[in-house]
Design a protein around this nucleic acid. Structure first.
Lengths: 216, 216
DNA sequence: TGTACATCAGTGAACGCGCGTTCACTGATGTAC
DNA sequence: TGTACATCAGTGAACGCGCGTTCACTGATGTAC
């Protein structure tokens, strides 16, 4: 119904247009920087350039703005991993190191869009305050872990790595990796230098594969 | 001056007695569970069993309560690592696996005191909202990393591990470990079952040493 | 032992403020005839 | 083409509420003489 009409306005967020999209974008930026609790509806309205009450022409509550952002995460972040079915094909072209490099490169491309980086940061920040956030964060972690595990399993099967438990490898590799990615995104959003943490991410990757007996 | 008088009352927090200590303890519990922002001065007073305004007979502001808690962290948590000078002696008795087990066991004993667990949780929770917390958390991480690195360096020197870069080992081991410890403390404070995460901590430890070529 | 005074944890009522939200409204735009 | 009506993003003023904090006070306890 409104779909064709919506396509006329500037399309910013998935399916959202005009002022509503600007509210979400602005809120996302403020939430990422200062946290949901520390940002008031007045702050958002001021940054968008409308009056406080106008927010309620688009959202029934402040919480619905956050919920919309969680919706973005669900669609744009959680659903963003390559299919496990493609793994076989990918691994034919990529040796282990290239595969893990590729994983980080995809992540880096994704969060090079400030909106995606902010979504990730809000997800992290609010995980202690909001059960929706905690659930999404957990789901994201599990999904990545399962993916990496499948990849390591194939690598071991192909004899590219020592014969170690793929699930253990996935845990030990990805837990450290997740902490480093979180730090990376935090620095990115704050406009600080990410070279140091990028170097640590690279080191971790190379070092882990060296320990796992990957062929050079 | 007041020192001898203070020793009369019930000594709860380091150097604090009576109501003041109860305020800190109660605030610590509430902050750990719901976060600093979500807990009001009235909440704390009600839980302690005094009137709101009585809080200000002991603290000049709500922030000073949080600051007192950060002070506890500084004294009780950050300063709690064994000296690096003792490493040589410890490692003579402990093979690598026993050493890492011992590290977790010390941590576990520490956070088996609910207050210590809550201090750890508040430190984690507030790291995005409070620069003091972020600083302490960072300092804590660096301290642990340096300690582990020194231990790995000695193990390599003794030929107990493969000849790998001790700093890299410390990063890859401890980053994942830190994430798991955080999860462990979170579950502990919420009174949930910690068996699963304890198993993962154990697995990570054993698996990492296996990869690093530790003798069984 | 009794009296006068100082100290100080704790009280009760109130403060100003910013919060999320409501609501009657305006005014521009699109639609029907 | 002109008029009447519907829609709806945006406005301005106000709401009740809970927040952190203040302040004059009470009343118990300790101290000096």
């Amino acid at each position: 119904m409104g779909d064709t009409a919506a396509a006329d306005g500037p399309k910013v967020d998935g399916g959202l247009t005009g002022t509503k999209a600007r509210i979400v974008d602005t809120a996302l930026e403020l939430f990422a920087r200062r946290g949901y609790d520390a940002v008031s509806v007045r702050d958002i309205a001021r940054a968008v350039g409308i009056k406080d009450s106008s927010i309620y022409s688009h959202f029934v509550s402040k919480d619905e703005i956050l919920d919309t952002i969680f919706g973005l995460m669900r669609r744009e972040f959680i659903a963003g991993l390559p299919a496990e079915a493609d793994l076989e094909r990918i691994l034919e072209k990529c040796p282990p190191l290239a595969f893990l490099e590729r994983g980080f490169e995809l992540f880096r491309q994704r969060v090079s869009d400030p909106r995606q980086a902010r979504i990730y940061l809000v997800l992290m920040r609010e995980q202690y305050n909001d059960s929706r956030s905690a659930g999404l964060w957990h789901q994201h972690q599990e999904q990545v872990l399962a993916y990496i595990e499948a990849a390591f399993r194939l690598m071991v099967a192909k004899g590219l790595l020592n014969d170690l438990d793929p699930r253990q490898m996935a845990f030990s590799y990805e837990y450290a990796h997740l902490l480093l990615l979180a730090e990376y995104v935090r620095l990115l959003c704050q406009g600080q230098d990410t070279a140091g943490v990028e170097a640590r991410i690279r080191s971790h990757r190379e070092f882990f594969l060296e320990m796992a007996g990957a062929k050079k």
